[in-house]
Design a protein around this nucleic acid. Structure first.
Length: 484
RNA sequence: GGCGCUAUCGUCUAGGGGUUAGGACGGAAGAUUCUCAAUCUUCAAACCCGGGUUCGAUUCCCGGUAGCGCUACCA
């Protein structure tokens, strides 16, 4: 595999894009044997460094009569096309300069008359074989002599890729099927140059949920977007492979990169367009996140927490953005964040959703809990008031007797007492208590959340985590106030 | 407009002249002695239309329709 930078379009030739492209591919787990960064036998690998090569071969084609100089101006061509459009005829080049005497043409160019170089398309239909589409045939009338070298001296995409592919001994040209209609031009070019035509494989387009071509409008569209969202590379690679390909039998969905390398066959790729389904990607991502080493996930997850946490801090304490970016949590905090991550990760599609998921741990707001619309139903249940009253009482009693720290065992005992005293059980019992402690009626097991809350409280963060007891106090206060 | 490509559940797909048309995501229902987005079980859900070939077509051929692409001195 070769990494070649196609940067004959000046606007895209910034180094930034090149680096981003390489970083994205590496992150996905793709590697190349030759390229601008690693070198190789066909150096240089940046098209903007190969302009001389393109010019030489274009001149060669002119000398051999396979291409010719075209003196038509852009305005003339534009008019020609408009006329054709008006007559609803096919918009092909008239061939006006096709038969200018070569000697005469050379003279005109020598005299400084601007001209482009056009390839002479042969009179017969152009056929080629495509690994995913089979045999494809285009009648030569629709191809029309394409420009290969602009009057500015800059070569055209459809021409440079052929030169590079041939010179770099590319055996398989694998690309999007939006290039299928360009292929006859390129095949004609190979033939004119006297070079062997490579294997083509045109992969189907990926569409958004509205059946239009995937674009920025559809949210994540570049590899970097997925990385930033906390999608694992193995999940993306697996999902992408499944768009248009399935193993024979079609019953397996999970493939590691190594398995894909071994089992993927271009011959089995479907030619039809595929709609990108975020939900299925997320399903794969959940699978890989759960399977991955915890240390790796924690390392990936911590930045999402610190970003979100620091934004909160900045909002509340007017922290400067410079201070923010320098803050790195001390080890005990990192360890604790690791536990939060492990608790929440099975319930999340992507890693960037973790801070939101962890909000009940970080941000406790009794007033909001009381007024939240999705808590209204639970707060209106017949047993709720009694459960809240008894639980609050028991917990304050516990606080006086044995201190502010609460273990899951102590919690369990208190809940059992509340259960016995109020007769509430199941949801009736646990939902109100959950609202007191986390502000929400749903969330992970109390057994796991309570130690994390207590441990977070002990860490004395700049934006402190409230302990269970503090939460109960606050809830009692807020609810007394509300009654007034 | 011309040319090209494509067409199996909502989505990704397997399959193939005779099948109960298979799997996965999502959805629905149930289970999990607290919830839940996790986990498990079950269910619903498809061969674009019309001709032809054939004993038989969702499968092969032709046409239509629809979607997408190309039609540049863009890539």
């Amino acid at each position: 595999m070769i990494l070649r930078i196609e940067d004959t379009d000046l606007e895209r030739s910034e180094v930034r894009y090149e680096k981003q492209l390489m970083d994205d591919l590496k992150w996905l787990g793709l590697d190349w044997d030759e390229g601008p960064d690693v070198g190789g036998p066909y150096i240089p690998y940046r098209q903007s460094d190969r302009l001389e090569i393109y010019r030489e071969h274009a001149e060669r084609l002119v000398n051999e009569g396979k291409a010719y100089l075209c003196f038509c101006t852009e305005q003339e061509l534009q008019q020609e096309r408009e006329r054709a459009a008006a007559e609803q005829a096919s918009q092909i080049y008239s061939g006006k300069c096709r038969n200018i005497d070569p000697e005469q043409a050379r003279q005109r160019r020598a005299n400084g008359e601007p001209c482009a170089i056009r390839l002479r398309i042969p009179e017969h239909p152009i056929k080629f074989h495509d690994v995913v589409h089979g045999d494809v045939e285009f009648s030569n009338e629709v191809v029309s002599d394409p420009i290969i070298l602009r009057s500015s001296g800059m070569p055209v995409y459809n021409y440079v890729v052929v030169i590079d592919d041939a010179l770099m001994k590319i055996t398989h040209v694998i690309r999007g099927d939006d290039h299928l209609s360009n292929t006859p031009k390129q095949v004609a070019l190979y033939e004119a140059l006297g070079w062997p035509v490579p294997e083509f494989a045109h992969l189907s387009t990926i569409l958004g949920s509205d059946r239009e071509r995937l674009s920025k409008r559809h949210g994540a569209t570049s590899i970097a977007n997925f990385r930033d969202m906390g999608v694992l590379p193995e999940a993306l690679a697996n999902y992408l492979a499944l768009l248009g390909w399935a193993p024979s039998g079609g019953a397996r969905e999970i493939f590691s990169l190594q398995e894909l390398v071994r089992e993927f066959r271009l011959e089995r790729v479907t030619p039809s367009a595929a709609v990108f389904d975020m939900e299925k990607l997320y399903w794969l991502n959940r699978h890989y996140v759960k399977q991955a080493a915890p240390e790796r996930i924690i390392k990936l997850a911590v930045p999402y927490f610190t970003d979100a946490y620091l934004n909160d801090l900045a909002e509340q304490h007017g922290l400067e953005s410079a201070e923010k970016s320098n803050w790195m949590p001390p080890q005990p905090v990192l360890d604790w964040l690791g536990k939060v991550t492990q608790l929440l990760v099975p319930y999340v599609d992507r890693l960037d959703q973790l801070p939101e998921k962890a909000a009940p741990v970080f941000n406790y707001d009794a007033q909001k809990a009381l007024s939240a619309s999705d808590n209204a139903e639970v707060l209106g249940w017949p047993h709720t008031d009694a459960v809240i009253a008894r639980f609050t009482f028991k917990l304050l009693e516990h606080e006086e007797a044995s201190g502010a720290r609460l273990t899951p065992e102590q919690f369990k005992q208190i809940v059992n007492e509340v259960k016995a005293e109020t007769g509430a059980k199941g949801k009736e019992l646990f939902h109100p208590i959950r609202i007191i402690i986390t502000g929400s009626h749903s969330g992970p097991d109390f057994d796991k959340v309570i130690p994390i809350i207590e441990e977070g409280h002990a860490l004395q963060l700049p934006n402190p985590i409230r302990s269970v007891c503090e939460r109960v106090h606050e809830f009692a206060r807020a609810s007394a106030e509300k009654k007034k």
